[in-house]
């Protein structure tokens, strides 16, 4: 693609690319913290206003049919170089915003499913979602202060994960730890692509 340099000093950029990585997991598991720890910009927290058409079938008893609702969306950015960025999107926690996941997941490099060992069941929906769509994901077990450090093998069994899916113990407040989770994901995604995954 050709972008004409129409003003002095404007560089002709042939291809700019922004890559999405999703950060999923249950409410309060540390998604926003993880984005904030690694993002070079303060994570943008936006409240999206959704029309009732977008929300679909929903329990809005007592509310008019033309109702609107808001959904919080956080994202952060890592610049790899001029014209190549990674965007981390914290997925909305509520199940009724699945349709928004579809949009976020389209074209995504992969996902991190954050898990809290005290509430592993909260991670099931995200695991199911990415498995069904063939989106590469890794599981990050957030080791909160005071939380018992779990054996990754137990987490794997509890979540019903195949042996291939990486499980990383992490601290979402620690930059090096978050970086390790992301490099694990990218490595896994490229290997998967090499093996003919979708």
């Amino acid at each position: 693609m050709d972008y004409a340099a129409y003003e002095p000093g404007a560089t002709a950029v042939t291809s700019a690319l922004a890559i999405k990585i999703l950060i999923a997991g249950g409410f309060g598991v540390g998604k926003t913290t993880m984005v904030g720890t690694i993002s070079e910009i303060r994570p943008l927290h936006t409240e999206e206003l959704l029309s009732e058409r977008g929300v679909g079938v929903d329990d809005v008893s007592g509310v008019e049919a033309k109702s609107t609702t808001t959904v919080a969306l956080d994202f952060g950015r890592i610049t790899i170089r001029e014209g190549l960025w990674l965007y981390l999107f914290g997925t909305p926690g509520q199940d009724r915003f699945w349709f928004m996941w579809d949009e976020l997941a389209l074209g995504a490099l992969g996902a991190v499913v954050l898990a809290d060992t005290r509430r592993l069941q909260d991670s099931f929906p995200a695991v199911d979602y990415f498995e069904q769509r063939g989106i590469p994901f890794v599981v990050g077990v957030n080791c909160f202060d005071g939380a018992r450090r779990h054996d990754p093998a137990k987490v794997r069994r509890a979540l019903g994960l195949t042996a291939l899916i990486p499980i990383v113990l992490c601290d979402v407040r620690d930059r090096a730890s978050v970086r390790d989770v992301l490099t694990t994901l990218v490595t896994y995604a490229v290997e998967g692509a090499g093996h003919g995954m979708p």
């Binding site: 074209g107 930059r175 970086r179 490099t183 990218v186 490229v190 090499g194």
Partner: peptide, 21 residues
């Protein structure tokens, strides 16, 4: 589709970029 935008070269750049953070 992701397969058309992210090739091995891009993956490598992203990995190197992350590791240097």
């Amino acid at each position: 589709p992701v397969a058309q935008t992210i090739d091995e070269h891009i993956y490598r750049e992203v990995l190197d970029g992350l590791r240097s953070l």
